[in-house]
Design a protein around this nucleic acid. Structure first.
Lengths: 188, 188
DNA sequence: TCGAAAGTAAACAGATCGGTGTACTTAGGA
DNA sequence: TCCTAAGTACACCGATCTGTTTACTTTCGA
């Protein structure tokens, strides 16, 4: 295994700090201190802090969706069960020691402007999640895969807010029960 | 109508700025400039910026829930229709010119620590919304009012994320359709 | 009418912000 | 072996941050 590049070190530590402390509240001095690199090195890899933020969001999108797909498909036998297993992944995620909500909802909160790159990357992440759900729905034989995907995602987003804002991690299970209704409707 | 007190001026302008630009990104200098008061005055009414933030969140909770209750009850004839009219209010809100998502989700994003006062006020706001939904569900004769209230709120939170992060303001209507399923189940 | 309370403008404090510049060191391939 | 690229440490820049202080003015009720 090759040693992580300086760039990777920076992105990894920035990702952790941005996720747990917020974007504006995390200064570049803190990032370079924890990543163990000089400020010169950071600014040779990223033109501005905003570009670093974008890089962390892109990495988060990759890591998050990979985990979601892996955990969803690991313990679900049938295509239909897979649609519900997404909520089991959600419950696992909520119980992570470092769970701090959805990084993309958080980014949108700090970067309100819809045309802002960080907000756009966040919207794109959500779109890709729905796309994955739609592929699951299609395989499962849903009558309206796109509709079902958005119904399931609506419940996922709701559960995330419950888990993060209200600290209610049982929300994943309740969302699963609600989801079953919509899965049943579309698959008989 | 009495002239607004200095304190009210400060809270009103701070509320608007925090909501549309974020908490960390909004400096007190900007607030006093737009409110037209001196820094001395601000700090005579609020010990710190954090206390001002708390005051804006409390005012937002009051304004938001008052509007929600008013708009929900205005155009809904029966108790059962009222449960769905909440989603009509949601759609109206999404189309506000200055819509910037849920201020309490945004606050939680910037103040991650669950024990942080701003996060706690946000959680309390959500609890009060669910409480209102439960009262509607009780009046409508739901079999499990608390359960129905949380189902409806789960859909509301999901719709808010769709509207804000993805810019999909039609989500309110889709959430309404989903909500109908759960209302039907509980009221026959 | 006078005195306290509440307001103003503006300088100031000390820290931190994102970002740059300088001078030196290290590592690796031609 | 030597050159280049990439790294380090650290001082520095101007701007901005939250919060305080000073000195003056306005308002208004006893």
């Amino acid at each position: 295994m090759p040693a992580p590049s300086k760039r990777e070190q920076i992105v990894d530590h920035a990702l952790r700090l941005f996720y747990s402390n917020g974007f504006h509240a995390t200064g570049v001095d803190r990032i370079i201190a924890e990543a163990g690199v000089s400020k010169k090195t950071l600014y040779s890899h990223f033109r501005t802090k905003d570009e670093l933020i974008l890089a962390t969001l892109r990495k988060r999108d990759e890591l998050f969706r990979n985990r979601m797909m892996r955990e969803t498909e690991m313990h679900a036998a049938s295509p239909r069960e897979r649609l519900l297993a997404v909520f089991d992944f959600l419950g696992n995620w909520f119980h992570d020691k470092d769970f701090s909500g959805c990084m993309f909802i958080n980014a949108s909160a700090e970067f309100a402007e819809e045309s802002c790159p960080s907000h756009m990357v966040s919207a794109e992440h959500k779109r890709l999640v729905v796309e994955y759900l739609e592929s699951l729905a299609t395989v499962a034989g849903a009558r309206e895969p796109a509709e079902l995907a958005n119904e399931l995602n609506m419940l996922m987003e709701g559960a995330i807010v419950y888990a993060y804002v209200m600290g209610d991690k049982q929300a994943a299970g309740r969302a699963r029960e609600m989801a079953r209704v919509f899965v049943d409707r579309q698959l008989d």
